[in-house]
Design a binder for these strands. Structure first.
Lengths: 137, 137
DNA sequence: GAAAATAGGGTTAAAATAATCCTATTTAAC
DNA sequence: GTTAAATAGGATTATTTTAACCCTATTTTC
């Protein structure tokens, strides 16, 4: 259905939430889950992905939590998508060639790959900074 | 995972196949399924969707089959996507508002809808005619 | 009337996604 | 040094979506 995953939505909300709190501020998953209205456990998985991708850093232990690792002018929506879902693959043969019966004779692969890159460029064109500005208006 | 459905792939292959056969030629689902390498039954569902959308016309009975209803310069990849999957909805609240817990307080909807339109524009920018030209090269 | 097609409802199977559960580890505070 | 609050993450289950399949009806040519 050409839809973004829930986990990505969770992650994007978390990042914009952290952004409004400022770069240095540590926020807990509980705080975000309560504030935004998401399940704490699932949001936690999204945060772990963001951390692995270097978008957020974490502080363990009491008073720990997450904070943004980079300035919001340098993080794009594409970065978050890739952190959470991996690089987008419009067609499944991009992930696993043998998932398509007609791989060797397929004429559409080039076009599809092209399309995929364009979509990724679209996501990469929005930084968290510009997203916040759009939201404020 | 931001992926296109198999049914859409089937439909797109069928349309390009019919296009190479010429506008007037009637082709059967069996012929296409054999030629392309897909399951006949499932391709048949895709064809029914294309018909309902006015992209293909059908002839029933012996010697029946499908053929393109419109010139390939006037059918875009977006038309096929919409025929088969319905209008794309990047986020599920676009389909069903109550599928999201934070619908009323969500700040991302505008941006997401915007993105969705841009993706659709991308698909609408390729006609079957131009797709075939890309393939030939 | 038989055969070859589309039309389409309904069911099952498989895969992907989302949610939950549970335990480990880290660290501050007392 | 024990407790409590947090992240880390493996493992499992539930749900939803997608794909595949089955079966019957209808249309039309010969």
């Amino acid at each position: 259905m050409l839809q973004v995953s829930r986990k990505f939505e969770y992650g994007l909300h978390a990042v914009t939430y952290m952004a409004t709190k400022g770069l240095g501020r540590v926020v807990t998953v509980k705080e975000m889950a309560d504030e935004i209205g998401f399940s704490q456990e699932f949001l936690s998985k999204a945060m772990q992905s963001l951390k692995r991708a270097g978008i957020a850093t974490s502080v363990q232990g009491v008073n720990g939590g997450y904070m943004l690792a980079r300035p919001i002018t340098e993080v794009t929506v594409a970065d978050i998508a890739i952190a959470i879902e991996g690089r987008p693959h419009l067609v499944r043969c991009g992930v696993k060639a043998d998932s398509c019966e007609i791989f060797s004779s397929c004429h559409h692969r080039g076009y599809m790959n092209n399309l995929q890159h364009k979509i990724q460029d679209l996501l990469a064109a929005t930084t968290i900074h510009s997203l916040l500005q759009e939201i404020e208006r």
